[in-house]
Every structure is written in C-alpha cells, then in structure tokens.
C-alpha cells in the first residue's frame, strides 16, 4: 500500500490548484448569488451580498414546493434501493457459489448491460410506462431504477461474496444450514462492505436521476422529484438569486452526507468504477 516517494514538481502543484480554482469559482458564485437580488448579481457578481437576502431560500422552497419534492425523492430512492438489494443480493450469492457455463453466461449478460447507458432506451421506456399504466407515477421509477442499477450491483456484490472462505461454507453446510441461513448469516455479513458500497453508489445515482424522472414521472407537483422541481424555477424572468438558493438547498443534503462520511463514500464510488 505504499505510494511513490513525495516528489516536488512546482508545475504540477500549480496546475492542480488551478483546477481547484476552476472547480470552486462556479460553486462560490452559486453560494453568494443565493443571497442576492438579480441587480446585485449582475452588478457585483463575486462580492459578498451587500444585504443578505435570506428570504431567497424561503421563496425557492415555496415556489418550487421543494418540501414535497424532497419527500418524493426520498421515497423513490429508498424503495428503489430496497428493491435493488432484494434482487441483486440473492443473484450475487448464486453467482458467487456457482462456477459453470450458465453462471458465466449470466455474468456476461450483466457485464454487457453495464456498458449500455440506460438513456439509450429512454423513449421505449416511456412507451412501456404508458403500456403498463404507470405513466406519470412515482411507482414506475421505483420499479425501473433498480433495473438500471442491477448490472453493476450484481457484479460488485458477486466479487465481494467470492471472498467468503470455502471452509466456512462447508462447515455451515455440515451443520445443516440451507441457502437462506448461509446467505443471511455467512455471505451478507462477510460481503457487508460491498453491500454498503452498492447502497451508497446507487442511492446517489437514484437521488440524482433526472431525464427519466422528467419524462416518465413528470412535473406534476404531487409526484415530481427534487431534480425535476428545481429547474421549474427557470422562466423568462428568472430570479437568479432564488434559483441559486434552491440549488444550494437541493445540493446541500448530498454534501452534508459526504462531509460526514467522505472516506467511506469515496471508497464506495471508486470501488464501483475500479471493480466494475
């Protein structure tokens, strides 16, 4: 786990912090704009607000009905993650315990699916939602999102479950443990880091999903998620301060979670890409 000796390279140092600046400036601009009026945003774009318009947050919250939208997002994400794990964990258990051609074909199917971005089939998915009578509902997203998450989830969980020592499985089997006991008492506890990684990774994906929520669940105030609700603040005469305030409110939950557990989250998200 060693890393190369600390080496000094002024150019790399300068460039790496320059990129931080490029990343940071739009975010700083967003946060200071959130407490300004349009006129002040235009005339003094990077200055701190002259008078702090905290009411922008309240206006954004009410105009876009963010409270209800946040609840919808939480509901869709939680049901979708429960369903994802319910489908992926048994599948990964089966694939980790079997080594034959059929198992390899199934693994290959999920590997191919991992490369196909779900957006490729947006319009047929809308047609499907209409056909099954779930167009304009949150329920379709709850059912659909797990499908798009399955390839990566199954592949990652299978890798973690392969680390279960064979001796442990055999001794448990000798004691008469069936699949259910093996799964819940042996495989899931040992593969727990994988389960946590998949949960974090897919919760973030579900929370951030935009195009399918927009086109299938739609913009109805009762059902829309927060990602769909916020852009509704854009109009011909957008109040940029209110829009910025709403954006801050919407991005904040993710950042709060990230600041509480950034190591854990970074590990989870990089595991997703490194192992997938």
């Amino acid at each position: 786990m060693n890393t190369p000796r600390r080496s000094r390279s002024p150019l790399a140092t300068v460039l790496s912090w320059l990129y931080v600046l490029i990343l940071g400036i739009p975010l700083y601009y967003l946060v200071v704009s959130a407490m300004k009026s349009n006129i002040e945003i235009f005339t003094r774009p990077f200055a701190l607000p002259a008078n702090w318009l905290w009411e922008n947050f309240g206006t954004a919250w009410q105009t876009a009905d963010l409270g209800r939208a946040l609840l919808n997002s939480v509901l869709v994400s939680l049901v979708a993650i429960a369903l994802t794990l319910g489908l992926a964990v048994p599948a990964a258990y089966a694939l980790a315990r079997t080594d034959n051609r059929l198992a390899r074909v199934i693994t290959g199917t999920f590997s191919a699916g991992f490369l196909i971005p779900p957006f490729a089939a947006l319009i047929p998915t809308v047609v499907l939602a209409i056909q099954v009578g779930l167009y304009g509902t949150r329920e379709f997203q709850m059912l659909f999102l797990p499908a798009s998450a399955l390839p990566l989830s199954v592949l990652l969980l299978t890798q973690f479950m392969r680390t279960v020592p064979q001796a442990l499985v055999e001794s448990a089997a000798l004691d008469g443990a069936g699949h259910w006991l093996l799964l819940t008492r042996v495989f899931v506890p040992i593969a727990m880091p994988g389960v946590v990684s998949v949960t974090i990774l897919q919760l973030l994906t579900f929370w951030n999903e935009y195009l399918f929520s927009l086109t299938i669940t739609g913009t109805g105030p009762d059902v829309r998620t927060v990602q769909v609700a916020l852009p509704m603040l854009v109009s011909d005469a957008t109040n940029l301060g209110v829009l910025a305030a709403g954006t801050v409110l919407t991005v904040l939950p993710v950042y709060v979670v990230y600041s509480l557990m950034n190591r854990r989250m970074q590990e989870a998200l990089t595991a997703g890409a490194v192992k997938g």
Binding site: L87, A88, P90, A91, Y93, A94, L95, R97, T98, L102, A103, I106, L150, V154, H179
Partner: peptide, 8 residues
C-alpha cells in the same frame, strides 16, 4: 442455486 438469479 442459479434460480436465485431469475428475478434479477
């Protein structure tokens, strides 16, 4: 045991 992959 591969039946467990059928739902997914």
């Amino acid at each position: 045991v591969l039946w467990l992959t059928v739902p997914s």
